[in-house]
Simulated assay, not measured.
Amino acid sequence: MFLNVRSSESPVRGRGAQSAQVPTRFGLATREVDGDWLDAAGAIDGPGPKLRTTVTEEFAKTAISYNTSPDIPFDRSLNPYRGCEHGCVYCYARPTHAWHDLSPGLDFETKLFAKPDAPALLRKAFAVRGYRPAPLALGTNTDPYQPIESRYRITRGVLEVCLETGHPVTITTKSARVLDDLDLLQALAMRNLTAVSISVTSLDPRLSGILEPRASAPAKRLAALEALAKAGVHTNVSVSPIIPAITDSFIEAILLEAGARGVQSASWIMLRLPHEVAPLFREWLDVHFPDRAAKVMAIVQAVRGGKDNDARFFSRMKPSGVWADLVRSRFRLAMKRAGIPQAKPALDCGQFRPPHRDGQLALF
């Protein structure tokens, strides 16, 4: 359940979500703008104030989140930020903002949280006796290279800890800002300690501008993949998410472009619409693609067992049906034509050495 709160009937410029989408799943107090007042306000006061991004610093007790999901290939992750200014309308992490009594809609992309002590907490976690290393995933929930990273540099601090301790780390991002840390990534790559995946959903900057308004343009993401590959970093192009009748026509072209830039592997994920993401995406379709909204959702439901989303383990990441099978075949053939070798990185966990505990020198 959700309450749709829109400040205007016109598109929200520069943002992915078109409304607040106040969650009611947790019994939170709801709020609603009075329609009569809204009609009069525009004529009297003019357009409302421009949406501004705010950042709240939070100080967590731990840095690493562990999971036992059978659907994802890692068991631990770290997210330097909550919320994401990139504003991708389809982002499956949006519902997490409800835990802050905030909207998974516009609040998710304008009211952000930063964890400035994440590198120190990570060092502390690595120093615990009995800690066993495995690849640490960055960017699994929100983007570690969203715009505020240029100010906080939390992701860079995390990479520095991983390089110092010889701990493997992977990155998923939609930002060319990842190149700000090319020096660290190259040093990690030389020791087989890192791999970077950049998501490219389309090659149309105008589409990208409304789908993921504050992420890097597609051309910049491809250029970042090329720069990383030339630096010896294992690179993956993630054609994710694939949105039927919106972005699926770009599959072959994206893979050809990525292959020409030396990308070593490729992957894809079908659009997922958990909780509040479904109504937010439907609203986005009504605003930007009203002519094909029904078709898009019909295909989405066709690959998700007749629902907007399939949340079951073992099937939530595996769409089914004729349309999904067609995408699999197209992707496999396009990879061959693009010459992408689909090399899977086997990051080295044997180099890990825990940091010194309590400032004392290690014996070995």
Rank of each mutant, 00 (worst) to 15 (best):
S320M: 07
E58N: 04
A189C: 07
R357H: 09
I340Q: 05
K230M: 13
T96V: 08
S240Y: 00
K344E: 14
N4L: 12
G350H: 11
N309A: 12
A41P: 00
L38E: 13
V233R: 06
L188M: 10
R151V: 14
E252N: 09
T172F: 11
L28Y: 14
T96G: 02
E252Y: 02
D358V: 08
R304F: 00
E160H: 11
T247G: 03
T170G: 03
Q146F: 04
A294Y: 05
I299N: 02
L78T: 03
R191H: 11
A334L: 09
D291A: 14
K318D: 08
P345I: 03
R337N: 09
S7L: 13
L102G: 00
T194C: 15
P354H: 07
T53I: 15
K61L: 12
P80G: 08
G232H: 11
D325W: 02
A43N: 09
A253L: 11
F281M: 08
L163K: 06
Q301D: 08
E226Y: 05
D181C: 03
L285D: 00
A215V: 09
V296P: 00
T155G: 02
W99V: 04
R151Q: 13
E257R: 13
E212S: 07
R282G: 05
V161M: 04
V55E: 05
S77P: 00
D248T: 05
Y145I: 10
G139K: 13
G359R: 05
L184K: 12
G14V: 12
P11E: 12
P95Y: 01
V169C: 07
R332V: 07
I246V: 15
D107C: 11
R312K: 15
M1E: 12
M335G: 13
S69V: 09
S175R: 06
N4V: 13
S265R: 14
L255Y: 07
H288A: 05
P23T: 09
A266V: 08
R123E: 13
K115C: 03
N309K: 01
L3S: 08
L112A: 01
V5H: 02
D107K: 05
K111R: 15
A258Y: 11
H288C: 04
F364Q: 10
L136N: 04
R31Q: 12
R31T: 09
S315C: 09
P73D: 07
T170K: 06
T165F: 05
V263L: 03
C84T: 12
S240M: 07
Y90V: 04
A40L: 12
L51D: 03
T172V: 15
V89Q: 04
R292G: 00
T140H: 13
P319D: 01
C88Q: 03
A298G: 06
E160A: 15
R31A: 13
D143W: 05
A215R: 10
L185M: 13
V239W: 01
A93N: 03
H275M: 12
P104G: 01
N192I: 01
H97M: 15
R191D: 07
F126K: 08
R304M: 00
A93Q: 01
V322R: 14
D183S: 14
L361D: 11
R13T: 10
T170Y: 06
D286R: 10
F313D: 12
R82N: 05
P70Y: 14
Q342Y: 02
L333S: 15
